[in-house]
């Protein structure tokens, strides 16, 4: 055999073996299919960022914490404490009652109790004084219930009497939630009208997965990353 033929046969043997291994890889269900192009090809700083809206701007949430009666009382309280003024939306127009249902419902029990007891107290007081629910009281009647409990206060020290605590905290929360709503932000503020708070929002900075819940403190990151429900994650030997 001439030397050239010998080399050619060696090369063809090598190519055939390689093709055979490649075919085996393609037929092996445990291995990922080869990508036609790198997954991140074309992603760069010029990549357009899709526009999106806040979910509560387009969708409704279900009442999850307050009872329907408590929500009617809270809605009336919101309307009394911060009604629409000078073209600015009021607390009800800013969806503040449903936001508070979400916020207070997610909060520690102590804060939930302040609101639940406070709203029940408003209803009981209205029934005792006016023989009707708080939600049906007129402005003068709501004033008779609320005004005796208004106090001035500063820093982190709200009044300590139970009803005064609730009324003044709720007033503060209702104002903050409304002023920081999109509905309020969409209407320019004039004069002393407060502006929607704006600031530097810090994203999670290398968040630690263990910190989210102490119950998972013993688990490794890849265990935490597993989908719930016992699905099997394919394993690729390396």
């Amino acid at each position: 055999m001439r030397r050239r033929d010998f080399v050619r046969s060696l090369v063809s043997l090598f190519v055939a073996a390689k093709a055979s291994r490649a075919q085996q890889r393609l037929n092996d269900p445990t291995l990922p299919p080869p990508a036609p192009v790198p997954w991140t090809l074309g992603l760069n700083s010029q990549t357009p960022i899709p526009m999106s809206e806040q979910a509560d701007e387009v969708a409704s949430a279900k009442l999850s914490f307050f009872t329907p009666l408590q929500m009617r009382t809270l809605t009336r309280l919101c309307n009394v404490l911060l009604p629409p003024l000078n073209g600015k939306p009021g607390a009800v127009e800013a969806q503040t009652p449903m936001f508070l249902d979400f916020l207070i419902g997610s909060s520690p029990e102590q804060r939930q109790k302040v609101y639940a007891d406070g709203l029940d107290w408003l209803e009981e007081t209205a029934q005792a004084k006016c023989k009707t629910g708080f939600a049906q009281l007129d402005d003068m009647q709501t004033g008779e219930v609320i005004k005796p409990w208004l106090r001035t206060w500063m820093s982190d020290h709200p009044p300590t009497e139970a009803f005064a605590y609730f009324i003044n905290i709720a007033h503060d929360d209702i104002r903050s939630a409304t002023v920081n709503s999109k509905a309020w932000n969409d209407v320019p503020s004039v004069g002393a009208e407060p502006k929607t708070e704006e600031g530097i929002y810090w994203l999670p900075i290398e968040p630690d997965v263990y910190g989210e819940n102490p119950a998972y403190a013993h688990m490794s990151p890849h265990m935490l990353a597993m989908p719930k429900g016992g699905q099997k994650i394919p394993i690729y030997p390396r």
């Binding site: 806040q54 997610s106 909060s107 520690p108 982190d156 709503s181 929607t196 600031g199 929002y201 810090w202």
Partner: peptide, 30 residues
Amino acid sequence: DAERLPASNLPYRGFRPPGRLEHVFQSNEF
């Protein structure tokens, strides 16, 4: 790690995320 935003763009409208940082009075959603 940070960007300037109005509170109306945040899920809790600027309130401290509930249940977190209960002893950090200085904290808020930002």
